[in-house]
């Protein structure tokens, strides 16, 4: 049994590539974390939300209390979330490095549905987790949008929770250096969603003032 689970785990673990911040895709998506209210299940003084969101990978959030360690991201309106990216560094955080992350979404604390689970193996650098609406609908807050594209329905939620389920080497507390939440980027000059984006130069010339 034990062998079996290990084998099945193996293909689910792509080699964790080192990705720099510039490799995060800011062209087709945008960071929406600043529009949210962030809270943590626990934090060591001086290693809290500010350090988690300060754009510096030298500082980090360190939990300081009982498991599970949670990051709560509450939006003021229902948002489309396409990706969450974490900056983790096994080489300096060692047993503090998360091993298993669970991402949940819903409209509040009470109706969270697990969207995806990410298993990690000694990650160093950015770990990107693409998000899609969980199959079969789930909570009322998660709507399957048919226009979401070929990859699957997009995730729309008021509330996203990241749960650090386990650390490497059975560590107790966790370090996460950065978390970024991405939504889709809409065309900058498009106003009416029932119309198409303009493509001809004649139309684009008169589409905006700059």
């Amino acid at each position: 049994m034990a062998d079996d689970s290990q084998v099945s785990q193996q293909p689910a673990q792509p080699p964790e590539a080192k990705t720099e911040a510039s490799e995060l895709d800011y062209v087709t998506r945008r960071e929406i974390g600043r529009e949210a209210v962030w809270s943590l299940s626990s934090a060591k003084p001086g290693n809290g939300v500010d350090q988690l969101r300060d754009d510096s990978t030298d500082t980090y959030w360190q939990s300081d209390g009982g498991q599970p360690h949670l990051i709560n991201i509450q939006f003021h309106k229902k948002m489309t979330v396409v990706e969450i990216a974490f900056h983790l560094d096994f080489s300096s955080d060692e047993s503090y490095t998360p091993k298993k992350l669970s991402i949940r979404a819903g409209s509040s604390f009470h109706d969270l549905v697990e969207v995806t689970v990410k298993e990690l193996h000694e990650p160093v650098g950015w770990v990107r987790v693409p998000l899609f609406a969980p199959g079969g609908g789930g909570a009322a807050a998660i709507a399957a949008d048919a226009a979401g594209g070929a990859e699957g329905p997009v995730l729309r939620a008021h509330f996203v929770q990241i749960c650090v389920v386990a650390m490497h080497q059975n560590g107790r507390d966790t370090h996460i250096r950065q978390v970024k939440v991405f939504g889709p980027r809409l065309a900058s000059v498009q106003h009416d969603p029932s119309l198409l984006e303009f493509i001809s130069p004649e139309f684009e010339t008169f589409a905006c003032i700059r």
């Binding site: 119309l195 198409l196 984006e197 303009f198 493509i199 001809s200 004649e202 139309f203």
Partner: peptide, 12 residues
Amino acid sequence: DNVPKESAVYFL
């Protein structure tokens, strides 16, 4: 007739 290659026009 003026802008024959604008798909938004055909869509509408």
